[in-house]
Simulated scan of single mutants.
Amino acid sequence: MKKTTHHDETLEWLPYANKIPIRNLHKSSLKDKRVFLRVNYDIVRDGKIIDDRRIRATVMDIRHILKNGVRTIVIVSHNGKREDFFKDNKTSVGIETDGEIHSGYSLKPVAKRLTEILKDRKLLPKDREVTITDDCIGEEVKSVISKDGVFLLENVKFRSGETSEDDNEVQEFARQLHDTTNCDVFVNADPVTAHMGHHASLGPITMFISGPKVAGFLLSQELKVLDNFMRHPQKPVIAIIGGANVSEKVEVTKNLIVHEKVNKLVIVGGIAFPFLKVQGHNVDNCILEEDPDLQAQALRNATIVLELAKGYGVDITGAILSANTKSCLKLRFQIKEGGKINA
């Protein structure tokens, strides 16, 4: 079997979710159906919920789905990063712990908290609970979630296929997810990682679900705001770009510059360090990619953005706050005319 990666430009995933808002679905599209609800409960560390706002943010979708007569909701989420479970393995080759439960990253605390919230909102009978499965695929899981109710699959990132760099493995895992969940409708209620359409439970799964594929309430709202901004920007516009990975932000940043949507970019967080490094500033104690190839890619991307900003007359300013490294604490920089960063 030929190995391909999601970086292969010849491979086109189907869209991770249609832009149709869930509120636009006719009741008949949900009544007596099984719904695959993709959420973002990446909030458990060391077995404890660090913040339940993401749980509460999904209640609107769950309420709407239940009110429209759905039989079963299968909630699907990741928690943690791939390297938390598989270290340097970028595919399933050589992995002997696929599917192993890592208690500190289990979604069991989420199931308990979601049960409390849904009962408090009178969306769940007192004698029912959100049932969490012991895995996210397989016959045992399929048997558990075959009934009516609200179910939460265990962390999909415990399975290598969710984020493998081998697209054949990703597609196979997506097929297994569908065979296990047997859902008719796909709802994307995860605006945080909705852009990661190559992950099995976000993009490829939609190839196997024959029914409607829609955006949840929060994602719909974000799409509406972004669409309005891209079509009718009210200048002057300042865009704030943050995060830890330049590679994930470079395309949107380039588009904002090239299509002249912004007058100024404010770069915050870890992605600012590569911008400083390419200008010769000492950021050795700051957070950069550990992988040399990824670090080199981040520096190339930073250089591209700086050159584009200079060419299109876009100002770039930024501020970094890091409590871990003295040399990065309250470090501020500004790109003046000529594309030079002044730290």
Rank of each mutant, 00 (worst) to 15 (best):
R175P: 03
G69M: 14
S77R: 02
F275Q: 04
V74M: 04
L177Q: 06
T180E: 06
F186I: 09
V44D: 02
K224A: 14
C183T: 14
S322T: 14
I95K: 11
W13T: 12
S143L: 14
N68T: 05
H64S: 11
V150E: 01
E129C: 11
A309P: 04
V250L: 05
C136V: 04
Y105E: 04
D284T: 13
R332T: 12
R82L: 10
D167G: 14
M196P: 00
D32W: 11
G149V: 04
S322E: 07
V35G: 06
R300Q: 10
K157L: 06
H26R: 15
V39N: 02
I95R: 11
A296C: 09
H6N: 12
R113C: 04
G138C: 12
S143F: 10
V278R: 01
I22L: 15
Q295A: 10
E165C: 13
I55E: 01
K249L: 01
A302T: 07
V150R: 02
F173L: 07
E290M: 13
K90N: 10
G311T: 09
R54V: 01
A244C: 14
N18K: 14
P212N: 05
F36L: 10
I271E: 00
I205K: 06
L276G: 06
L66F: 08
L152Q: 02
L152G: 02
K157M: 06
I73S: 10
V252G: 11
K235R: 15
K336Q: 09
N255T: 10
F275A: 04
N285R: 15
K122W: 07
V250D: 00
G197T: 06
P233E: 01
A111T: 10
N40W: 03
E9F: 14
T317V: 11
K122F: 09
D148Q: 09
D61R: 10
K249F: 01
G243L: 07
K3S: 12
T91H: 08
H6F: 14
S103H: 13
R53S: 13
N79L: 13
I238L: 12
V144I: 15
F333H: 11
P109L: 04
I132K: 05
G104F: 00
P212Y: 03
L177T: 08
G94L: 08
G149Y: 03
H102D: 02
R45T: 09
H232A: 14
L288R: 13
D184L: 12
K261F: 00
K254M: 08
F186V: 09
L294G: 07
I267Y: 00
E251T: 15
H199K: 09
S77V: 03
V237P: 01
G269D: 01
L219M: 09
T133M: 08
H178D: 11
T5H: 12
F186R: 09
M1P: 13
S146L: 06
L124V: 11
T303A: 12
K2L: 13
K87C: 11
N301K: 09
D52R: 08
I238V: 15
L37A: 08
N282A: 13
R38P: 06
V250A: 04
